[in-house]
Write a protein that binds this DNA or RNA. Structure first.
Lengths: 197, 197, 197, 197
DNA sequence: TGAGTTAGAATGGCACCACCCGTC
DNA sequence: GACGGGTGGTGCCATTCTAACTCA
């Protein structure tokens, strides 16, 4: 299965999503993460080799993809409309992460306008904790616009930052009480992908 | 005074910084905000006309700049190295916002490597509240690397998201107790700019 | 009171001793630490400004010493015999730290051979925990050689390394159970100095 | 093969490393250890003649080196930058031992800044036992800085102190269960030298 | 609009257990 | 082979601060 993660706005958890979905899919079958981001965030994150799955950059993708059952592609920020069509055509599922704030939602709506509803699904990320209604409001807005959304939110948790610092995925973070909950978010998203895929 | 805001990574408060510095500088002299971001976030934000200063996109910059004493430029994410040199050459101060996490700090360090210490200054943004040590640690790391940093952090506050929703700058947000504190952050940064500039 | 810390062998806790005695003496009166080590370890340690006392290098010593009641001098490793005489002549107390192993003890014995018993006192450092007899054996050897020794050992504790990492003295270390015990070692040594001085 | 051991900070196992590498290389071919340390630690250690290889001080080096295939040079602590260039130019491999703590690592980084990556290799010494993560963290830091590191750590073991007391190398220590493991550390380092050299 | 209240996140402190080294 | 002690890991409680709700 080939999964592409793309967004028009940066800082909405695109790399975090790509990494943790790859980590989850690796539990199902050999998985490769292709780091197409210009900052090489994923490769930088994995500098110390704390991932179970394989990581490579765009140029090595063809070589490494032979041994992988699942492939997750982390794309550069702000793809052009033409690139967007290419990305959508080259995958089985296009995940569009967005945080529940006006700017990110606006950029997301702008993006999905160019996409077929069959190919993409929106993932709400960096959702504040329960007393906040941002997550629920954003979800309601998405559903009223009849856009496909993952039923699980990715919560805003410090554990994800710690994971980047420690160079591991969040399920291997030490010294954070919420790390298990953080990993659980992506587990549910991964299960939703495998079930519907 | 011409101030450019640029970063290699998205979602670190680049547009928020540009808007609020323009709002502050307007209290000193007529100010223009040039929205160079491909998402046109600033223009989208100001859709309802809730700003005191003028806003235009890149193409209109020359025309509007005649009436402005201060100009703030919001640049697209991930400028190339060549663009970076052009940006640095075309302003009096280049502000590099970064949140205090590993990925954003890495991208920031990558960026300032191409810049002269005389032209840029780092602004810590989205800094978590006091029990967290992220802000202090990031500041220590920057100072140990001998990078110029604004002495005031921009705190992680919901008021900034509400400002984007309401289409106004944070000093005009209603229904948020922390909005005054949020505005105070950028006020101090603005004063630091006017004093040193 | 002027206290000099010197040793013929490196890695025996010379800088750690100088820093923590300065921290202790600061509780008695304004104190200055003169970093004479070529590595500038103390200045590096204090880079983030985590000390109560003042720190300066050799060249600034005269200027800063005017405001200080106590002065602690951290000397370079392996002083020559001539330097040793100068160091001994320029202080009220010369502390010779040594760990309880054959190499460090040998270097220490070599050193004190050039010194008057009235001016120096040996400080056992990096002493392993109780099941080990190294500390007791070293203390017995020193006393049988009729050398003046501080009655308190500085124990081998991870807290001292954490202190260097955090850029603070061990009494300000967070997240270490033994930090209080570590600080207690130097407190007792400091009290012994003030009492006998 | 000429191997030089040097460090900016004392107490990081420089002499211990020189002695045990000489002991290992002696199993390959006649080996000479040149004791350049001002404390004459190696000569003191070997006072009772417990080494298989030959030992001499700097002045005798030329004379003894005629009969040796391998030469290991133990240098004085804190060489000047000029001496460093001379040392690097006079050997096939420059080993820089460092313990995994902030002060030693800082001094090491300061030192290798003057060296070519082709000539030196870092050796992690005095690494605490497994529950501690110091060794792994230091190794990760070295690798992220792209510095050449020996793949084997020298562990912090009492056997090395006993070896110094008994005047023998650690493979001849009696009455210590961990002596074999201690010797094994240097065996692996020695094999890495012979293989890559 | 402003003050008091509640829920949740994050740090720090403490107690408990596991592992390993050093001695007996 | 057994015991004591240090280090790291985890779980639990206390504290602080933000964001939301409620009341005047």
């Amino acid at each position: 299965m080939i999964i592409t993660v793309a967004s028009f706005k940066g800082g909405v958890g695109k790399t975090t999503t790509a990494i943790h979905l790859a980590e989850f899919l690796q539990t199902d079958a050999p998985t490769l993460l292709v780091d197409g981001d210009l900052n090489r965030s994923a490769l930088q994150w994995s500098g110390t080799g704390g991932f179970d799955f394989q990581v490579c950059d765009e140029g090595q993708a063809v070589k490494f993809s032979r041994n992988a059952e699942h492939i997750v592609i982390d794309t550069p920020a702000r793809p052009s409309v033409e690139e967007l069509a290419t990305l959508a055509g080259g995958c089985d599922l296009l995940i569009v992460p967005t945080s529940p704030d006006a700017l990110a939602m606006g950029a997301m709506l702008q993006m999905v306008d160019y996409l077929d509803k069959q190919i993409f699904r929106v993932l709400l990320t960096i959702v504040p904790a329960k007393p906040s209604k941002r997550g629920a409001e954003a979800r309601a807005a998405l559903e009223s616009a009849d856009l496909p959304v993952f039923s699980t939110d990715i919560r805003q948790l410090d554990a994800f930052k710690k994971a980047a610092e420690q160079g591991v995925s969040v399920n291997k973070v030490t010294g954070d009480r919420m790390a298990g909950i953080a990993w659980n978010c992506y587990q549910k998203v991964g299960e939703e992908i495998l079930k519907n895929g």
